[in-house]
Amino acid sequence: MNIIVLVKQVPDTSEVKINRETNTLIRDGVPSIINPYDRYAIEEALRLREKHGGKVTALTMGPPQAAEALKEAVSLGVDDVVLLSDRAFAGADTWATSYAISMGIRKIGQYDLIIAGKQAIDGDTAQVGPETADMLGLPFIAYIRKIEKVENNTMVVERLMDEGYDVVETALPCVITVVKEINEPRVPSLKGKMKAKSLKVAPWSAKDIAADESKLGLKGSPTQVVRIFPPAPRGQREMLSGPLEEQAAAVVKKLKEQSLI
């Protein structure tokens, strides 16, 4: 079973600052890590390999320093890495990013499954997974919390929903994104870290993946960011628990206290 894991290098902070003039993220001086959700994707790929054999390839698009994220993936146990890095990719929105990634995947050629984290913690769009699937003409399932079984080119998975979960059967190859409930990611191994240290990552350019330059980077990005702002804070909330009657009585009491009823 050959698996491609999509990873993204993100700033290691939940308090990313925004450049007010360009409306883009300020990444300078912030240490970079693998997007935490992608660690679950890597872990699941490694577990599938341990069960079914095959090969795991980690793919990312980014500046040359994104090779560090791929090296971390190698330290965790992935077999192969692909770095898409070219000035032509710069300024890409999720659509142009997904185009470049889908072309990179076409170049890799052989695969049974593509796994990504449910979203990246910097942009939080959750779009690259589904858009990549669309461009490759593959089935897509989001929010996978469990891979039940894989056999005869089909896969049965559990998709996490707000209330409960769906059981979905899909043909392979397909693209899935995973949630943190799916597994507990491993730490790297020492042998993996040593292998990663000596690894040289040769990037693939736009030419290497035979991409149409008009669909790449800023040029190929239909998204226009008009304004970025933090959403207005929600008011104070309180969760009630216990028997429904008691909860209802508590709500009535509170509403009365605030003279709302």
């Binding site: 491993r186 730490v187 790297p188 191994s189 020492l190 042998k191």
Partner: peptide, 20 residues
Amino acid sequence: KAIAQADLLGLYIPEQYGGL
């Protein structure tokens, strides 16, 4: 198990016997 997976149980064992 995590310590084993990280190769740390084999640190002081010679390479010829599967350690580091």
